[in-house]
Structures are given as C-alpha cells and as structure tokens.
Design a protein around this nucleic acid. Structure first.
Length: 769
DNA sequence: GTATTATCTAAGTCT
DNA sequence: TAGATAATAC
C-alpha cells in the first residue's frame, strides 16, 4: 500500500473513503488525476472486480493513460477491464448492446455536427422554411439544449414557454423541426452526440431490468470534471448510483468552461442535496505551478461571484513574473512567441514539448504556425478541422457507414453521386419525396425502385440500380473481409481513388494523400488486437466505425509528435500542464469573446477559461496581445483584454516600451485612432498554401492498445461442455448462441454484440440453460 | 445533369 | 480568407 504514502492528507482521505457518496473539490494542479488513479487502484486492491467500476473521464486519452497508471499500481492486466472513457463513448457502447430495446440497430450510426446540420437543412427545405431565418446551426443548438435537458419533441411542442420563445424569435416551427429531426434520425438508425446521453436516459427510464443490471454492475462510479456535466449526464449518474450510492465526483467549479454545451455548474454546487451523506474533500495544495502563477490565477478568479470557497496555495518556488508582450499584428505576435520559445530553448535547454501555445479560437493558430515554421520549430495542432471531418475522408467513411448501416441517409446523400454517376439533385429530391410519402427510408426506395412511384426515367433508374448493386457487392463482404481489405476495395471500386488521383492540384494531391492515410489507419486497425485476448473476431469496418465518430483530437498521438510544441484552444488544454505556456490573443472581443460581453454569466465563464489557461503553466506563463489582426480577411484593431488588468499587478511584468505602454486603468492603449503605425502590419504575406497542416490525429491508431496477458484466465471455458446451440454468457458481450465450433474456436452470435469468434482456451464463458 | 464561375457569408469553445 | 451556395454555360 505504499502508494498511499505518496499522498497528502486530504488526497489520502479522498482515496480511502471508497464507500458512499464522495465529492472532491480539486483546485488546479492539486493532484486530482493522482487521486482518481489511486482511488480506483485502491478499490481494486480491496478485491473489487474492475468490471464493476465505471469511471467517466473527459477524454478517451485521459482514460487510457489512467488505465495504464492503474495497471502499474495493481499489477497484471486487470485494469483494462475497468469501464472507463468519456460519457459519450461508454454509453455509446452500452447503447449498442441494448439497442434493440429502444428500436435501434446495434450498429447505429453516430451523426456528427455536420451530418446533423445537413439533415436539418434537408428538413427545412422539405418544410418550405427559410434557412436564413431557421439557421441550421441555431436550430441544432436549440434541439441540443432540449435534449440535454431531456425535453422530448412532444414535450417541446407542449411547453408554452419554449413555444413563445420560438414565436418571438420568428421561428414558430422549431418544435416541429425538432420532431421531424428526431423521427428522421430514428429512421436512419442514427444518433447524434446528444442522443447518446438522451437515449441512455430513455433506456434507464423505460427498462427497469436494464437499470437494475447496470446499477449492480457499476458498484463504484467515478466522474471526473464533474463541473462540466450537463443535466442529461447528471441524471445518468444519479440513476446508476441510486442503489449502492458509491458515487465519487471530482471537479473544480472554478474550471467550469462548458456551459455553452449545457454543462451546469449547479451539478457540483448541489451535489450535497442529492446525497446528504456526502463526504467532501478539498484539495487545495497546488503542486504544479510557481507561487507567482498561483497568486495570479487566484487574483483572476476572485472576480467571479459564485464559487465554492477554497484557498489554493503552493509550496513551490516563487518563480518569475508573468510577462506581457504587445505585438503590432497577429503575425508579429506569432513571431514574438516563436522567438521567445527559441530563446528559452537555448537558455534553459528546454524541449519543444515543454511549450504550449494556447488560444481562444482555432482561427488563431494560423499566425502561430507560420512563425514556428519559419523558425523551424516543430509543432502539432490539436483540434481544428479534424482529419475525420475533411470532405474526402467523410466521403469514404460514408461508404463505410452505408455498408454497415444502409439506412444512414446522410451518408447515402453524400455518396450516391460521388464520384459523379449521373444521379443529381433532381433525382435525389424525387427519391426523398417518395421516401416521405411512403414513410420508408431512402435505401428502401432505391432498392425497390419498381415498387414505388418515383417518376424517374429508366436511364436514371438503371444508374441507381448499378449504384445499389455496387453497394450490395461491398455489403456481402462485410463479415468476411477485414477493415483494410474491404476499405481498400471500396476506395478503388467506387472510383474515389481515381477521381482524386486525376486531380493534380495541390489540394487534390493532399486529398489523395489523406485517403492513403486513412487506408494506412485501417491497416493498422486491422492489425491491432481485440480488447480481449480470447476474441479473435476479424476486425472489420463495423468495428472500425464504432469509435471513429467519438475520437477526439487528443486521442491519437503519433510517436513522432512527442517532442513538438503544442498548439491548442484553451478548452482542449483542460487537464493538461506544460512548463512554459503562451496565452496569445489577449484582446477584448477575442478573449473575452465578443459574444460573452453582454451577460455576466458568459463573462464569468470566459474568466474561468482564462483561469484554466493560466493554471496550465508550471514554470512560466506568458501573455501576448496584438494591436491589430485579420478577421475574415479584414484588418481590425484591438485593445488589450480586460483580463490582463484583473491580474494582481505584483504578478506581472510588462515587456513593451513606456511610450506604448498605457496606464493600466483606462483605454488609452494605442488603437485604431492612433498614428497609423499599425495601419499596415509588416509580414502580411499572402497566406499561401504550404505543406498540408500537421494535424496530429491522422491515423486512428491505438484505439485499443492492450497487450494480451497469458498468465491469468486459468478458469477458462476450455473444458466446458460447449455444443452448437448452447446458450452462453460472456462477461462483456452478454448472452449469445454457439453457432459453430472448430479447432478450439467458437463462433458465437451474441444478442447485442453480434457474431464473434472466440478462442475457447481463453474465453470466460458461462453456460446458460 | 455537369462543370465552371460568381457571390455570399462565416470564425466561439467540443462530444 | 475559404468553403458553401447560387448562377451560368454547356
């Protein structure tokens, strides 16, 4: 138990209080991850089966790293069996295995934001609604908010206050759009991100036996970053923990930065109300940052009104003051930052990966990239347009999606005429009308053209038929072929590869390379082992698609990306730490964002975001702002952020000259009204297309990077009396029927997990009568 | 129905 | 600026 020695008193108490509800308020850098890791290890050491532990983290990468650390403490390979991941990925998995109960196929598609918006656009068109009024993004966020508050379409339509809000904003039909949207998702066998939580709630509400099962499976529940859970997530946790009450939530109200996606800071403030017996522990000692950084951060956050009282302190060294730089333009800001990083590397022998550049919006990365590239400093970008959202990748993935789930309409619409095969918009409109009139999905129409009145001429019909037969020829290979082989065949047979290869523009070449990259990723996926060693099911496209939609930018890091400067938004930096942190774009209307300026609540969230940014730094935090920057191709002038003024002056050091430095109180910084010095910033090269941006998550590797363990699993099913037709129970796949047995390998059709080939030597199977 | 060109409009953060 | 959409010519 020597790991307990590595903890301070409150950390140790939080680790040892394994029974009953626990809330841990963890200040920035106070060893929160360590507490979570040790707590789970402690529970396992007490003899609890890892299968009975549910740990919800903020990224899948965090989950993976935590599993590895727990594995080191408890030894063996048992840690892999913990149910650990993001809310979305854990409950997607549970929904797949229980899908039949709520009328979904187990291989349902997950619609990303783009799919959802396209679907909404289609609905608006069909309903004759103006998409200038009903802006798809706005409609979607309204639907999203409804779902996160568990408001069904029917409830939405019956809710007078929602209705009057929509009427007032000239969108009276919004509830109707929500209703149709839900129906269409259902018909397409698709769930959007919010559905993963919403449908989990439906499942737990309507199927008491399912609720009972998971309430007793998850004997211990841990939730990281609890301050960022929304109502839907809150309720899932509440229901699952209702019986055994071993719910441990960890969070910091000062770091709540996701209200815009429904996160409710009240969840953590009100935890006591749901669990009067709760034991609360506060972690207040910061082990990450210097005294100066902690003092600066504290001076920022006191400007917020509502928060849990705590006193974050540190015994670390004083450290240097936070330096503030002023740049003439966004490009010059990039140059300053790149130079500072370069100098610091020389003076401190610092490595590239000791540095992070954090910004409020993804668009700010461009100037930083250019400057780093010029100084030959390697960097990596998290976020932005992810690999999987690029057009060419989505196109190929749409083929995969349709093969796995032919009802997936958004995928169908993407590919039915890509590459061009003479099935244009008019045809698709006719097909959509026919589908709506007959209340079936598009696939049903195009596979039975002669049974429906589509009004299409025979030429078009035969084009559709050859598309259908191509898709069917892929479909029949789905089970037999692995992901790489089938993916490769699709890429070439569909004509995608040829189409992109013939495009010799730089964009076309880059697209072609991206497709190759995806195929490489498929190859790697195919060659990775399944999660359980007894599971020798070929890794096909079905399996590949399960995780792709939920991969976050942080989830795939290549080895060659290890020693690089990190560029990311502050949001995605949550939970991370770096010795040297540059926070750039410290300007009014950018940070705080212009859209947050009208409400105190929004402004406080921006301030918490700034708090998060500053507390990422271990040794030094550097702030910078530009006097002008490009926005939509136009030059605009900027003022320094109010947040700079909020930091205790003792913590700061201004790095620009007296003539340009302003007294700290009012707005007499140089602005557009000044002498014109800033009217034409230097170094505004026309942005030219260089090498494709180094986006980090290029291959879906490490989806499951778990090495098999031969030493355990002695009590296997090797000598069980298995026959064709035997009903068996597997601890993760659930119930299934033995379909065939051959050379120690059984093909078992699991009710929820589908067909799997398992090695009997290892499989922990129970025979059911 | 397709390919090319002109015009519009969006960059706020993420699963 | 750049991607999406509308308009135009074929």
């Amino acid at each position: 138990m020597d790991y307990l020695e590595k903890l301070n008193t409150s950390q140790r108490q939080a680790v040892q209080a394994t029974e009953g509800p626990v809330m841990v308020i963890a200040g920035a850098g106070s060893g929160k991850t360590r507490v979570l890791t040790y707590r789970i290890a402690h529970i396992i050491n007490k003899g609890i089966d890892p299968f009975n532990i549910l740990a919800l983290t903020f990224t899948n990468k965090a989950a993976q790293e935590m599993k590895e650390r727990i594995g080191k403490i408890v030894g063996g390979s048992e840690a892999r069996n913990i149910w650990m991941g993001t809310f979305h990925s854990v409950f997607a998995r549970i929904l797949r295995s229980e899908a039949d109960k709520i009328g979904y196929p187990s291989n349902f598609t997950i619609y990303d934001t783009q799919d959802a918006k396209n679907l909404i656009k289609g609905i608006l068109k069909e309903q004759g609604l103006d998409d200038k009024v009903y802006k798809p993004g706005l409609v979607l966020s309204r639907i999203s908010a409804a779902k996160n508050n568990l408001i069904t379409p029917q409830a939405y339509l019956n809710n007078t206050s929602l209705q009057s809000e929509d009427t007032q904003s000239a969108k009276p039909k919004l509830g109707e759009v929500y209703k149709i949207y839900s129906e269409r998702c259902f018909k397409a066998g698709a769930m959007d991100f919010d559905d993963l939580l919403f449908k989990t709630n439906v499942l737990l509400r309507d199927f008491p036996e399912v609720l009972y099962k998971y309430q007793h499976r998850f004997k211990y529940i841990l939730v990281d970053e609890y301050q960022d859970t929304n109502f839907s997530q809150y309720l899932i946790v509440k229901k699952l923990g209702a019986v055994l009450q071993n719910v441990c939530v960890v969070g910091d109200d000062a770091q709540s930065i996701y209200a815009f996606r429904g996160a409710n800071i009240q969840n953590i403030l009100n935890f006591k109300n749901d669990y009067p017996e709760v034991k609360t522990y506060k972690l207040e000692q910061n082990y990450r940052s210097t005294k100066n950084i902690v003092a600066a951060a504290n001076s920022i956050i006191v400007n917020n009104k509502e928060q849990i009282e705590k006193n974050v302190f540190t015994d670390n060294i004083e450290g240097s003051k936070i330096k503030i730089y002023k740049a003439a333009s966004d490009n010059e800001e990039g140059k300053i930052v790149a130079n500072l990083i370069f100098d610091k590397q020389l003076s401190e022998q610092a490595k590239n990966n000791d540095f992070a550049i954090l910004y409020r919006t993804n668009a700010q990365s461009r100037a930083m990239e250019e400057a780093l590239r010029r100084k030959n400093i390697p960097y990596k970008i998290y976020g932005g347009l992810s690999f999987y959202q690029r057009k060419e990748i989505k196109d190929l993935l749409s083929y995969f999606r349709m093969i796995v789930n032919p009802q997936d309409e958004e995928a169908l619409k993407r590919i039915i005429n890509y590459p061009a095969r003479g099935i244009g918009n008019t045809t698709i409109d006719k097909l959509t009308i026919a589908a709506n009139n007959n209340n079936v999905d598009l696939w049903t129409i195009i596979t039975n053209l002669n049974q429906f009145n589509t009004g299409l001429n025979s030429g078009t019909q035969s084009k559709i038929q050859s598309f259908v037969s191509m898709m069917n020829s892929f479909r029949v290979q789905l089970e037999a072929k692995n992901a790489f082989d089938l993916g490769n065949e699709i890429a070439s047979t569909s004509g995608i590869l040829k189409d992109l290869y013939s495009d010799r523009t730089p964009e076309g070449i880059s697209k072609y390379e991206n497709i190759q990259e995806l195929l490489n990723g498929l190859k790697e996926f195919t060659e990775t082992e399944n999660e359980f060693e007894e599971d020798v099911t070929p890794r096909g496209l079905t399996e590949f698609l399960q995780d792709v939609a939920l991969l976050t930018s942080a989830d795939n890091e290549k080895d060659e990306d290890k020693n690089k400067v990190t560029l990311m938004t502050i949001h995605s930096a949550k939970g991370l730490e770096f010795p040297y942190v540059h926070i750039v774009g410290m300007e009014e209307n950018l940070f705080p964002s212009q859209m947050s300026l009208t409400s105190r609540i929004d402004l406080e969230e921006e301030r918490r975001l700034f708090y998060v940014a500053v507390t990422r730094a271990e040794k030094e935090a550097v702030l910078s702002f530009a006097a002008s920057r490009y926005k939509w191709g136009n030059l605009i002038f900027c003022e320094p952020s109010r947040f700079i003024e909020e930091i205790d002056d003792k913590c700061l050091e201004y790095m620009f000259s007296e003539t340009t430095q302003a007294p700290r109180s009012q707005n007499n910084y140089e602005t557009s009204s000044s002498n014109g010095y800033y009217s034409k910033p230097k170094n505004t090269l026309p942005p030219k297309r260089n090498e494709p941006p180094k986006i980090i998550h290029t291959t879906p590797k490490n989806l499951k990077k778990i090495t098999p363990n031969i030493s355990t699993n002695q009590d296997s099913a090797a000598n069980l009396d298995l026959n064709v037709g035997t009903r068996v129970q597997h601890q993760k796949f659930g119930q299934g029927l033995v379909e065939s047995i051959d050379a120690g390998k059984a093909t078992i059709n699991f009710i929820s997990a589908g067909k799997k080939q398992l090695l009997l030597k290892f499989a922990k199977l129970e025979i059911l009568n």
